[in-house]
Design a binder for these strands. Structure first.
Lengths: 160, 160
DNA sequence: TATTGTTATACTCTATAACTATA
DNA sequence: TATAGTTATAGAGTATAACAATA
């Protein structure tokens, strides 16, 4: 177990990571913000799925996913077909236009990473992927609540 | 130089990191959201500084810092004293109440990290700190623009 | 009754633009 | 003219709550 000072340093780096996210978001097409990009990426990687599955993979509330998916459907990048097995549900999948958009995004982000990480060794990149993957597995998910850790008796951020 | 597929995987992990941020933000006191916490942390670590320096360290626009600082000043956690050497400027420093708040936050986040990362080796934690630090150094800063990497001819997110 | 998804509301983060005061 | 900071505005992310339709 690491010392509290290492945890504090890690927390600072997490906070500073916002600058990386913002830099990356500037490489996205103006009509596809980061949240929409995440949806397209998951549908491109894992294939068609239901809203609830998508929200689970994104670790966000279903209401968030619902809105992002509506944004993408308006632009013709994904289809929401009814699920014959459960009429409450909808099956999401990329359209050809959505796949083209995803390809465009892939090229943009690859170009950005090549510039920003051009001098990184493959080892360090793989290490970072490994550690971030493990981090994500250990940290929380708003849809499966755990006991709160704040000193406040009751939740913490009213809207979260 | 790594392959585009590694970059794509890294981009997915960056996106998934949002779940970690959200989990961490739930451990904060209800009256001190993540942005305010970042300000308190920097002032606690680096001591008093000007608004512009703070915005530089946070890699956000000065207007963002101005609002966050106002929020903290309203609650009595920081002071904004005039800079005798430049009357346009203000020097920020923590008040005793601000130091107490910071200490409370430190305890909360340490408790959360102990739970979530209790089974991590010190080596992996140090590796993650090292790689995130390097990442932050290589990635961008909204206040020193670089050539855009989107395929769009002109920047990209209207509001960014 | 419980679950899937949608919509309304509210709050945070963030950038751009217009403005004031000072250099 | 240029810089430090404030404020107004707007868009994106996010959660909670109320709701409709279906299981």
């Amino acid at each position: 177990m690491a010392a509290p000072e290492r945890f504090a340093e890690l927390a600072r780096q997490f906070s500073a990571f916002g600058a990386v996210r913002r830099d990356l978001s500037r490489a996205l097409p103006y009509d596809c913000p980061p949240g929409s990009t995440a949806v397209l990426t998951l549908l491109g990687r894992d294939g068609e799925m239901r809203m609830s599955r998508l929200a689970e993979l994104l670790a966000v509330d279903l209401s968030v996913t619902s809105r992002q998916v509506a944004h993408l459907a308006e632009r013709g990048w994904i289809d929401r077909s009814p699920d014959p097995a459960d009429k409450r549900s909808r099956i999401l999948h990329l359209t050809p236009a959505g796949e083209a958009k995803l390809q465009e995004i892939f090229l943009n982000t690859t170009r950005l990473f090549s510039d920003r990480l051009g001098d990184w060794s493959e080892h360090d990149i793989d290490e970072l992927i490994r550690l971030l993957t493990r981090l994500r597995a250990g940290f929380g998910d708003c849809r499966s609540p755990r006991p709160p850790y704040a000193s406040d008796p009751i939740p913490v951020h009213p809207h979260k």
